[in-house]
């Protein structure tokens, strides 16, 4: 049996190497996409990143939503709330980690609050807005902060525990729906 390998006829044009594509292709028209940030973490440094990206995205005229879930939900509890939840376990959880955007801890080098304190000092010195200021700016520019219904229930959080202006709680299907349709997701 003979195997006839059919060689494709190569023309001069086909063998020419394609020109290297630029790493960043400039679109003629800005692409109309919106951004969905999934704020999973309650750690200070990640909350900061969430707030910086959300406020910048809204400032750039991009429709921006932030889905707030798990530890991220603690960030959106009112600063004045100390204990949340109904059962002793839920209460213990909030007692162990104080909720509120102004009471975030660093994931490393927290040193019982010394780390965040130094971070705040440095931020002030270099004119970096605090997560709270950025959150307020983001809300003023129309960023939607959407809590996760399931985590709200699990942590025993009630709508009145949360800061003003939060959107209606939704579930994972809404998030996936947005991503599959038009939203660019960022998981933080």
């Amino acid at each position: 049996m003979t195997i006839v390998a059919e060689r494709p006829v190569t023309t001069a044009r086909e063998t020419v190497e394609p020109a290297p594509q630029p790493a960043f292709q400039e679109a003629a028209e800005p692409v109309a996409k919106d951004i969905l940030i999934i704020d999973y973490s309650g750690d200070l440094e990640k909350v900061w990143a969430t707030m910086i990206l959300a406020s910048t995205s809204a400032a750039m005229g991009v429709k921006t939503r932030v889905f707030v879930t798990f530890w991220g939900l603690q960030v959106f509890v009112k600063d004045s709330k100390r204990i949340t939840g109904e059962t002793w376990m839920q209460k213990m959880l909030s007692f162990m980690q104080r909720p509120g955007v102004s009471h975030r801890k660093l994931s490393k080098m927290n040193f019982m609050g010394m780390g965040p304190w130094m971070m705040r000092k440095l931020a002030k010195k270099y004119g970096v807005a605090s997560p709270k200021e950025l959150l307020e700016a983001a809300q003023a520019m129309g960023v939607e902060f959407i809590p996760c219904q399931m985590t709200m229930d699990m942590f025993g959080l009630k709508p009145e525990d949360m800061i003003e202006g939060m959107a209606e709680p939704v579930g994972a299907a809404t998030v996936i729906g947005l991503i599959s349709e038009h939203s660019v997701p960022l998981f933080i």
């Binding site: 406020s55 400032a59 807005a129």
Partner: peptide, 14 residues
Amino acid sequence: RGSSCPMPIVKTAQ
């Protein structure tokens, strides 16, 4: 003046 990223952009947008 004196503000870091992203405040110049945020203030401009507002």
